[in-house]
Simulated assay, not measured.
Amino acid sequence: MTTLFVRHLTTYRYRRPVAFGEHRMMFRPRDSFDQRLIDASLRIAPAPRSLRWVHDAFGNAVAFAGFEAEADTLEFENRIAVEHFPDPVEFRIEDYALTYPFAYAADEQPDLAPFMTRQCRDPAGELERWARRFLRQGQATPTGRLLMTLTTAIGESFVYKRRSEAGTQDPLATLHLGRGTCRDFALFMMEAVRSLGFAARFVSGYLYVPTRDGPRHLGGGSTHAWCQVYVPGAGWVEFDPTNGIIGNRDLIRVAVARTPAQAVPLSGTFHGSRADDLGMTVDVRVTSGAGPGDD
């Protein structure tokens, strides 16, 4: 068990004081057997007029802030501490799903169906052809090996390139360009395994970068994204194609969703002209053993 501390600071700056519309936040991690939230605080400046919490359709904790004051800076500082239990994936898969292809159990199919449905265009079947390259021709393919190979292949075949623009790249663009961000790779893997009949969902959260333990992970210093695939007997298993991580090692899960757009960490509006917007900065620090500093 490791205690991980996160300080996530987002700052919006404007040329003049502006009014703010409602802002939606997904900062609070999900409690589970492999991570336990032990402390959380949220500071917003200027202070919001109202702050309310809900659980969305996926059970994620979502906060909505409403504002009255105008300001030339809007700042969100989220601090959390979680007890993290790295869960080595042993792929204890049900006998019927040990090899691919297989069909999910009849009683699970209605619940998994939304996560099996492909969300992105692939008119010529390019993504499916890419994914099928990793199947054993003419014979069954071990399910665990297939998913691990796909994860590794994405990290090795594509170049990680940080991108500040909002949104997620279409998987076909990732395939053609040969590059993308962590969220692009997560969506690419989701659509690839969905083309093979797996249920997959998007995960937003944080990445612990243990520099003392070896090469740096990609995607540190900001929020991170990966995916989960439903494996009978093992359940929802984490796959981070950006770093080749399988299982929850170094990953702090905040939100899960059917599409990346449903798991955006922070979104909102302001009332003013486009020229008033001076941009946004994000600083994420994840440490173990002691909380991040205030500098």
Rank of each mutant, 00 (worst) to 15 (best):
F158Q: 06
P88N: 09
R79C: 12
L187S: 01
M1N: 09
F67Y: 09
G268L: 06
G291E: 14
L146F: 03
A19W: 12
A153R: 05
A200D: 07
R16F: 09
R136V: 15
L172S: 05
L51F: 01
Y160F: 14
F33A: 15
P110V: 13
R92I: 04
T11M: 02
R24M: 02
V82W: 06
Q228V: 06
M116F: 06
D250F: 03
A263F: 07
D122I: 07
F270Y: 15
I245N: 08
D34H: 11
V237R: 00
F102L: 12
C120W: 11
V82F: 06
S50T: 14
Q109N: 10
D240R: 02
S288Q: 14
D213W: 09
H224F: 00
A61T: 13
V284G: 01
Q119K: 13
G233Q: 11
T3W: 02
H55E: 15
R16M: 12
L9H: 13
L37F: 02
H55L: 14
R249M: 08
V89W: 00
F185P: 00
G138K: 05
H224Q: 07
K161H: 08
T2A: 12
T143L: 01
H8C: 05
T211Y: 10
E75V: 10
R92L: 14
M280D: 09
E90A: 14
V284R: 01
D111S: 15
F76D: 00
P260S: 03
G66A: 13
A57F: 13
I44H: 01
S50K: 10
E238L: 03
E70V: 14
W130A: 02
P171A: 04
P142C: 09
G289H: 08
A257F: 07
E191V: 10
Q109G: 07
L42W: 01
C182E: 01
A61G: 07
S157W: 08
G214L: 12
A65C: 09
S222G: 14
F91P: 05
R7V: 04
Y12N: 03
V89R: 02
S222C: 15
A69C: 08
F202T: 03
P86D: 10
F27E: 01
L187T: 08
R163K: 12
R201E: 07
N248H: 06
E108A: 11
T168M: 06
R274I: 14
L74K: 00
T211G: 03
A153C: 02
F85E: 11
G197H: 04
R7Y: 07
R274Y: 10
L4Y: 07
H23M: 01
A113V: 08
A124E: 12
Q139D: 15
F270A: 09
D240G: 04
G21M: 06
R129Y: 05
P29H: 03
A71Y: 00
I38N: 08
V282C: 06
H224A: 03
A131Y: 02
E70G: 06
T99A: 15
I154S: 00
R7N: 07
L42T: 01
L135Y: 04
M148W: 06
A105N: 04
V54N: 05
R118M: 15
H8K: 07
F270Q: 06
D295K: 07
R43L: 14
L42D: 03
